[in-house]
Design a binder for these strands. Structure first.
Lengths: 316, 316
DNA sequence: TTCTCGCCTGAGCTATTGCTCATAGCTTGG
DNA sequence: CCAAGCTATGAGCAATAGCTCAGGCGAGAA
């Protein structure tokens, strides 16, 4: 009896679903066809969905990205996640995620109410800033999370804060410090001086932090860019460093190391767990362990990456 | 440029479609996520559908039936078509289509305004009548399209009109004639007498005709039931008869034959093309040519059959 | 460069859908 | 056989979606 009823009910649900999704009829029409009230027709359509009698298949590369993003968001409890299609021609290409980062910055900066945006390191972040749509928002504030004086004393080539300020008319707070100080004491002294304390204070109130994620291996960007020496890099690797965010090295579980260069870093340390929306932007197989660690350690609560990287992170 | 734009537009459409159909968000939410107006979000979802980026798959036997019905309806310009799942255990089973026929009768008879229902021959029609839900509709009229006196002079076992009248309280008009008269002259004489003319007049105004379809082969129901002799059957077959509706034999193109038993038939002839809603009800591989011919000749403008038969008709 | 054409956009309205609640019918247990 | 509980039903309302129209923006031609 029950089975018979259920079966005929599911049959009707399937019919209703077919008529609704495939034939494109309204529920009113379906109700008339199946000789039931509109409310019942609606229930049948719902049932068809609930029982998974009907499935949706999105035949488009984007579909996979959307699903990966949803899974990452779920798995790591993220406030924001975007996955862009990997460019087969250039697997490490930062263009795709930069576009999304720029979009994120755009929409954040579009707000009329003052917002504070903090920027970290990374090619994606730099490229993103270049793509931000100019807009006049003098009440916003842009703050740097990392020192923009490189080892040789010159201002860093990558003045992302300044560039973004140019495009928005926002006040900006570069960090007028070298990336690394020569000793822990000196670092501690410097971060207390007025201009730096001010930058720290602004950064602490940031509404959005956009940071790159670097891997700590022989091709670590912090080394290539000359911020840390080969020896410093190797020491950090020995200490378990697997990735870095704004120069702060962390291990495979996303714990910030309390030694080595981390003691002399002037960068504003990541909050753990990230309180403000902190979006990591990174792609590439080499960065997978670093990204995964940052996610697990909750150094970041948002991620913008590409399809291949997303898949690799989820498959670990 | 254009291609680039189109591509990104399709990407967005895919995103919107994914968020709408798979993630189950509202278009308002999607609009916010994609940073567009709700109207645009709606357009993206439409586009996703229009571009067939998304496809619906109904994993249920009913889905195939629905599609077959839609194709039959389209192909033969039918006012009504239903296809029921074939019962693998009993390929010739009439139960499925009888249930649908009964449902059709139910909904027709449910009307408060007087309707005229005409019934033909066939196991499905008989079984359908047995399943009709009793309802009190004294103003309806039920009329028989075929004589209910069999060759031996007794009232036919299959008094469908009477049974249906019992269940509805409707007036009914059986046809008090033998199926076949002994000659054309006699037939012409009989159909002019008052009670028969009355039945014809009512039948001509029928809102719904429900008829079985018989094949004209050695297992023809009209022969098995003893209405036509073996010789008569063979003669009709020689004349090209491939099927019959209410006894009226027609050829492979659905043209009524003007010879043989058709000259002595008392049944009310099918209107060609069918004016009233005329639903054929039949299943079985043997009946496929007969059904297809009836459809092509527009002897019927509606069909209730099963999956296997529907498929065979479409594949001819 | 400026004009024109045409597509895209957003506002606002209407149709459709989803949901809630009170009711009715059915099942199950006493 | 009756009563109690449960599920299904239909009315009505709030939310959502679809559509039309006027206006704007950009591409392409002069």
């Amino acid at each position: 009896m029950a089975a018979e009823n259920d079966k005929s009910r599911l049959d009707d649900a399937a019919r209703a679903g077919w008529l609704y999704f495939i034939a494109g009829h309204t529920q009113d029409e379906i109700a008339k066809m199946l000789q039931v009230s509109r409310a019942s027709a609606q229930r049948l359509v719902s049932l068809c969905l609930a029982e998974r009698l009907i499935t949706f298949r999105l035949e488009h590369p984007i579909a996979a990205c959307m699903e990966l993003a949803a899974r990452l968001k779920e798995r790591f409890d993220l406030v924001h996640c975007e996955v862009v299609p990997a460019d087969p021609a250039a697997p490490q290409a930062v263009a795709g995620i930069a576009e999304r980062c720029a979009n994120l910055l755009d929409s954040t900066l579009r707000s009329e109410t003052p917002v504070i945006v903090a920027l970290g390191t990374g090619r994606a972040v730099r490229a993103a800033v270049e793509r931000v749509t100019p807009i006049d928002r003098p009440n916003h504030q842009i703050v740097s999370l990392v020192g923009n004086i490189s080892a040789d004393g010159s201002a860093s080539f990558y003045d992302t804060v300044g560039r973004l300020a140019d495009r928005t008319g926002a006040r900006h707070y570069p960090m007028p410090l070298p990336f690394l100080m020569s000793s822990e004491d000196e670092r501690n002294k410097m971060v207390r001086i007025e201009p730096i304390a001010k930058v720290k204070a602004v950064a602490a109130k940031a509404d959005l932090r956009l940071v790159g994620i670097g891997q700590m291996d022989q091709k670590a960007q912090v080394h290539i860019d000359g911020f840390v020496t080969r020896d410093e890099l190797f020491e950090m690797m020995r200490l378990g460093a697997i990735g870095e965010i704004t120069g702060w090295a962390y291990d495979a579980k996303g714990r910030l190391l309390k030694a080595g260069t981390n003691k002399r870093l002037t960068s504003i340390p990541p909050e753990v767990p990230a309180k403000a929306t902190t979006i990591g932007a990174a792609v590439g197989a080499a960065k997978v362990p670093a990204i995964a660690a940052a996610l697990n350690g909750r150094l970041i609560n948002g991620l913008i990456t590409d399809e291949a990287t997303a898949r690799a992170i989820l498959e670990r």
